[in-house]
Write a protein that binds this DNA or RNA. Structure first.
Lengths: 351, 351
DNA sequence: CTGAAAGCGCTTACAG
DNA sequence: CTGAAAGCGCTTACAG
């Protein structure tokens, strides 16, 4: 295999030679170790500029034992032919990555993205790449926390609940509250038969389950007995929502509204209603979750629970980098605000 | 600033000690340099496993002069308060990044993501991070090619046309053909007054301009005189499309169809029509470009020109890595296929 | 088949 | 204020 080598870059030696000083002095000047005289500093900086010198980060990482790299790790969808990362389906991640990158850049870190099939791959990748910290997306089994703690680097779980989120940094929202607000909006409008469309509810403490609890609380508050018959489980995707939409329409009891755990699911539900000739919000009211940009694009615009996804990414990166640079902020659990955004997919029940 | 140091990882020395061999032998075994005896190999591998040893990539990069890192560089939106990367607006990038990451991972590379405001920042970042190759998204000024060539690393421009794409690797589609197919679909349906909604047409050779030429060709083919009055320029975004939609409706001449350069723009146009009470496709036919997943989500489903975005990312990474590992494939210009996807946003003109 | 040694490009005590 | 030297964790001729 013929490898194309990197350009022979100018090194610290070249700069030292040009400025007629030692490499230690060049290093000191560049790292703001205030030892050199003004005159020496000037000479060094001049050499740096004319030679267009950039320190080799690999060498720096090696000696500093710090890479200034953070990893953003996504689960892989194992059921696909290629091991695609999980994000493919959801535009949520574009905004999220954007936020992570933006914070990281402003703090002098770079972002390494990868997919990892399971906790072991995750761990291996981290220890191989020598990243300073990791952001773990989505849901790996709880055991991942134990694995990662062995690595002794800071990491932040995002959208993770349950016991393990108590142990390291986390950034999330109050999911219970989100479910509550969404549902209360519908009960306020006068709906009684409100369905709940979600992914896996079995994982107690997970995002889905928390939102479900909020849904139940809102119903109980107005004396409606929530029963399992109104819960629809599917994949958190457009297709998952589409299927659920048809199941909802098949129901004999007159469901008039749906709370969902993700906009993407709500879009599928809306589509199924349209295909079947039902009107929104006249026949069904639908509330999403996330406030993807697409909520404003579709017709009718989707009423949803807004979380600032860009900010979420940005704060996650901040939290992580604080954890890397100061001990203090690891174990911090940031909770981001939530807003109900009312558009045209919700209205009074027509009876 | 109290820095948390990386865990003191097991190094090659630990392995050598454990296996009772020299570090050179450990290195040879791990790099498949077939020198060691079977017995020695076994001992080394055992040590590697029990100590959970992972070579430090920073050290490897330093001595090999190769980082196994590729960079994915996005322009920054300068008009925003924060320097967000450009992708924020368009779900296109989620799929694209997914494709890049997937290819890279399978070839043993990792993907570093960053935003860079201009060519200089771009260049600086690359030479600082010592990446093996770069993928440059979107459009920087032509001068970027000259800048990057000085770095002597392979790079691939994506969705870039014009003189500079002749010089290094590129991956794209036949944009002229895309514009042609989209427009021909409409002329086949019987449309005569077909608008063209795009971003900047001034950049000759750019994506917008190429597609515009295809649009013109399709019109000329059926004897329709394309004139500038039917061209609508705006930002390639939902909002840009939304504004253009209203401009189209204001027109006295009876426009019956619109060709766009991006789905995201088409969504904005569709929305403006809905808001104004116009029907699609009865009053207006609309054709998008890209085939974002959202095309199937909206109602009516958007007729569009499909390009396989995941594949585009995957092939871009392939091309780049080939360029890194073998000289041969740099300067290769890959053209990905295009398909017309007919949904419900297009139909015969109603007159 | 195996190992001692040089070197990749830096930083950091340490001595002067 | 400045520089020589050791060392970060590897790979790669080279010698045996």
């Amino acid at each position: 295999m013929k490898v194309r080598f990197m350009k022979k870059n100018t090194t610290i030696k070249d700069v030292a030679r040009y400025a007629q000083v030692s490499i230690a002095t060049v290093s000191n000047v560049l790292n703001n170790v205030d030892k050199a005289s003004e005159e020496t500093k000037r000479k060094v900086m001049e050499a740096v500029h004319t030679l267009e010198y950039h320190p080799n980060v690999n060498a720096q990482s090696l000696v500093r034992q710090k890479s200034n790299l953070i990893g953003l790790i996504f689960p892989l969808s194992k059921h696909l032919p290629v091991y695609k990362t999980f994000m493919g389906d959801n535009p949520f991640y574009t905004e999220y990555i954007c936020g992570v990158e933006c914070s990281a850049r402003s703090r002098g870190y770079d972002v390494l993205i990868t997919g990892a099939g399971d906790e072991r791959q995750c761990k291996e990748w981290i220890s191989k790449r020598k990243i300073d910290g990791a952001i773990i997306m989505g849901k790996y089994p709880d055991s991942i926390v134990k694995e990662l703690e062995e690595l002794q680097i800071p990491f932040v779980m995002t959208d993770a609940h349950g016991m393990y989120s108590e142990r390291q940094g986390s950034v999330g929202i109050n999911d219970e509250l989100g479910g509550y607000i969404a549902t209360k909006h519908l009960t306020d409008l006068g709906h009684k038969m409100i369905a709940f469309a979600a992914g896996d509810l079995d994982y107690i403490g997970g995002v889905n389950h928390q939102r479900y609890q909020g849904y139940q609380r809102a119903l109980e508050e107005v004396g409606i007995n929530s029963h399992n018959g109104l819960v629809f489980i599917g994949t958190v995707s457009f297709d998952g929502g589409y299927e659920i939409g048809f199941k909802i329409m098949e129901r004999l009891e007159p469901i008039t509204a749906v709370v969902t755990v993700a906009d993407i699911m709500a879009f599928g539900i809306l589509k199924s209603f349209t295909v079947a000739g039902r009107r929104v919000p006249e026949d069904y009211s639908v509330v999403g979750f996330d406030d993807l940009k697409e909520c404003a694009y579709v017709t009718p615009g989707l009423t949803t629970i807004r979380q600032d996804i860009f900010q979420k990414g940005a704060i996650t990166a901040e939290t992580l980098i604080n954890g890397i640079e100061y001990e203090k902020s690891i174990n911090s659990h940031v909770e981001l605000p939530l807003t109900l955004i009312i558009r045209n997919s919700t209205g009074r029940p027509s009876d």
